[in-house]
Amino acid sequence: MGWMGPVVNGQAHEGWVVPLFADGAQGAGTTSTRGVLMARRPDDGPRDGDRVRLAYRDGGTAEGLWSDGTILRGDGIVHSHTSRQAASRWSTRRREWRPDAAVVGWAADRTCGWRGTCWTRVPPELADPAARRLAVTGPWADLDAADEHRVMTEWRRHIAGWQALEEVEQAAARQAAAARALDEAVRAAVAAGASEADIGRATGVTGRSATERWSARG
């Protein structure tokens, strides 16, 4: 389950709970009857089973399935010159799934790459949230709502600064909108014959202050 955080300077700070594995890998937050879908970072290199296209400096290309550092082309030829490519990309990545039983813990994760402290998976009789030990019931590795909330508490603390900035941005936007609306109302009142003293009384300032503020704005 994803948690949408504040949007500051056009950047969303989204977080979610990810399952962790003993070898340091983490899930992508998607589960099915096949197990847990493994996460792949954009800068990860190709893995066995990925369909890869290599482009060389001389203009040549090679495309096929990546297997142990080589490319298996569609014509059955093994292309092993994969170390001098100018660029590489894959059109399709092989989806890797692991069984729910292999999950050893959970952590809060964020789009920026930050990850919270691990919560360890234990049998139900050893569960102790105060000691960061959680358990699940049944065959799946999905936390219940209460435990997911506990894990995401660390994420909420992490984004507290951005949350405050979002509130500042929103307040500033409201203030700017109110100022524009006031300027328009003053112009309309002046056009209808209101004096500077009238404007001052309506806005809670002196007539002189009203003159200084709005006469320069036309």
Rank of each mutant, 00 (worst) to 15 (best):
Arg57Glu: 13
Glu125Gly: 00
Gln170Ile: 11
Glu125Lys: 09
Glu166Pro: 03
Thr92Pro: 05
Ala181Asn: 04
Leu65Gln: 12
Trp90Ile: 09
Ser195Pro: 01
His81Val: 09
Thr31Met: 03
His149Glu: 14
Leu126Arg: 13
Arg89Ala: 15
Arg57Leu: 14
Glu14Met: 01
Asp128Asn: 15
Val122Asn: 11
Gly49Phe: 15
Ala191Gln: 14
Thr203Ala: 01
Gly193Phe: 12
Gln11Asn: 13
Glu167Gln: 06
Asp23Thr: 04
Leu126Asn: 14
Val36Glu: 03
Arg115Asp: 02
Ala25Gly: 03
Gly24Val: 00
Ala178Glu: 15
Val205Gln: 10
Ser88Leu: 10
Arg93His: 14
Ala22Asp: 10
Trp90Lys: 10
Arg89Cys: 01
His81Thr: 09
His149Cys: 05
Ala102Cys: 01
Ala192His: 13
Ala202Cys: 10
Val36Phe: 03
His149Gly: 03
Gln11Ala: 12
Arg180Pro: 02
Val186Tyr: 06
Ala189Met: 12
Ala177Gln: 12
Val168Asp: 10
Ser83Arg: 07
Pro123Glu: 15
Gly204Asn: 04
Arg121Trp: 01
Leu165Trp: 07
Gly200Val: 08
Arg217Met: 04
Met4His: 15
Trp162His: 13
Gly218Asn: 02
Ser195Arg: 07
Ser80Glu: 04
Glu212Gly: 07
Asp109Cys: 04
Ser195Met: 08
Val104Gln: 10
Val78Ser: 15
His81Phe: 01
Leu20Tyr: 09
Arg187Tyr: 04
Glu63His: 13
Gln11Ser: 11
Gly161Asp: 14
Ala28His: 00
Ala202Lys: 09
Ile159Gln: 15
Cys112Asp: 15
Ala192Met: 12
Ala28Pro: 01
Phe21Lys: 05
Thr120Val: 12
Met1Asp: 05
Gly2Trp: 09
Ala141Cys: 11
Gly193Asn: 12
Gly27Thr: 03
Thr31Glu: 02
Gly207Ala: 11
Trp119Pro: 03
Ala176Asn: 11
Met4Trp: 08
Ile71Gln: 00
Glu148Lys: 03
Leu37Met: 02
Arg93Ser: 10
Arg110His: 15
Arg47Thr: 07
Gly76Gln: 11
Arg53Ala: 14
Val7Pro: 11
Ser91Arg: 11
Val136Trp: 03
Thr153Asp: 13
Pro42Tyr: 06
Arg180Gly: 03
Trp214Met: 05
Leu72Cys: 02
Asp68Ile: 03
Val190Ser: 11
Leu182Pro: 00
Phe21Trp: 07
Ala177Ser: 05
Ala101Asp: 08
Asp23Leu: 02
Arg47Ala: 14
Glu184Leu: 09
Asp100Lys: 01
Gly27Phe: 00
Asp58Asn: 13
Ser83Glu: 12
Asp43Tyr: 09
Pro46Asn: 14
Asp198Ser: 14
Arg217Tyr: 06
Gly60Trp: 07
